[in-house]
Design a protein around this nucleic acid. Structure first.
Lengths: 247, 247
DNA sequence: CGTAATTTTGACTCCGCTCAATTGGCGTGG
DNA sequence: CCACGCCAATTGAGCGGAGTCAAAATTACG
């Protein structure tokens, strides 16, 4: 089914000398908590890297599932269409995060993944992952953990979409983004949004105008500063208080 | 970490002579597509069964993650609290479906799982699954597939919550339920809802009054018959048309 | 059989959507 | 380099769908 020999590198992928052990994303990626010797064995799986231009699709919904991708640098959205123009953004992904795992079940990607800025990914052919995971228990465990964490993340989004008000959704999103940037060594309070208001609205289950109004409102309340895509959080605790307050 | 010897059966679990090969859920469960010999080896993992009374919790959010559960009979909900009374129902589960996988990542269950009627589950200690999956590639692949399918399912819910109107959400839910009952040999159009309007509303991101009104509306439009928890779908195509219609 | 829980239905409110106009950025080409 | 055009973002006015509050009806269950 997933014959190793059948896996070809993607057109624009290049074979690299890749070392996970030297990658600064290693503690956020599949290699998390792996011993040095296991990590070396795992490096054979990392087939290649692929550079992406902003707007380019890493894969489209319905494409044959061959590989999982680890984001090395840049920023992605994944989204889902229902065939009639309706689009749902299902997630935003940054360095160290994995893309494409939803394809394992059906042999086809369920989402599309689009680069929201120039980016680079590591290509991990799934047949190889499966084979190596059979031999390295630490990798198998980590793979399961990554899949399960994706499920937990999705449940968080379900809670957000199912039971939060608009301002709570945006506050939750900003706090989440802040935490993820922090984990990558960036400022917790000062960052550049890579997505449009429309994409953010889709993710949060809101219309773009509502997102824009909320940014303005948060600005008026001295919680953030906004200038187009650049956001500076002025009052993290204040954003947290929006969530804590029951109605 | 997940030492096999440390795994004890849950208090109310009993050791059974269990055969997956004789289970009528085998084609919906983890054993799907498995060869007879692999299935026999897998049966050692199925530690025990556990009977559940309606309202009983299979596990609570935050409980230590030890096992995954396969529903043999009955009906469950999983839900997530945010610590302040807000509850989000994240799914409904019936025969052949797996519960508790979201715990793999953090070592603790993220959801609570509650039986909505008297039910029975197979207990699959995760340490054993992991060990056996190392030896049976077909099981490993199936496990990954089940995890990935759960992610795909969650994305469907995100689309539902993020971009559908109330009546589309309920129609989608009814059609989904109909399909799952059909796959289990029950009537596609005539079934008993196990959840309250409030639980269904939570799942669909609606208030219970809205769910009730929608049932009445669908009834007026001759799409369904409703009598309390009993639902009969009169016009499957009509329900489908609700989704197809853009606004 | 009585009490609590669930469901239905109505009246009213309000949050987020729709429609619309304007402004602001940014890349492209003259 | 600047002008143009396009896309993204902001802001306003008005509307409507789902929520809130409340009461009654029905059912479940000890």
């Amino acid at each position: 089914m997933y014959a190793v020999t059948a896996v070809k590198p993607a057109a624009s992928a290049k074979k690299f000398e890749v070392t996970c052990s030297g990658c600064n994303m290693r503690e956020l990626c599949l290699t998390r908590g792996m011993h040095a010797d296991d990590m070396q064995r795992f490096e054979n799986v990392v087939y290649a890297r692929r550079r992406m231009k902003r707007g380019e699709a890493l894969f489209a919904a319905g494409d044959e599932f061959k590989a999982v991708y680890a984001v090395r640098s840049g920023f992605f959205k994944t989204s889902l269409g229902d065939g009639e123009g309706r689009e749902q953004v299902t997630g935003f992904f940054m360095g160290g995060e994995l893309l494409g795992m939803d394809g394992i079940g059906a042999g086809r990607y369920n989402n599309a993944a689009i680069a929201l800025e120039d980016s680079e990914v590591c290509v991990l052919p799934y047949a190889m992952i499966e084979e190596v995971a059979q031999k390295i228990p630490a990798l198998q465990r980590q793979l399961h953990a990554v899949l399960a964490r994706e499920i937990v993340r999705d449940h968080g989004v379900m809670m957000l979409l199912g039971s939060m008000r608009a301002e709570e959704r945006l506050a939750t999103f900003l706090l989440n983004l802040s935490k993820r940037f922090t984990a990558r060594g960036y400022s917790p309070s000062d960052f550049h949004l890579r997505m449009t208001r429309e994409e953010l609205g889709s993710y949060l289950g809101l219309k773009l105008e509502t997102v824009s109004r909320l940014f303005s409102r948060f600005h008026d309340e001295r919680l953030i500063e906004v200038e187009q895509k650049h956001v500076r959080i002025l009052d993290i605790a204040g954003l947290g208080r929006i969530l804590a307050t029951r109605h």
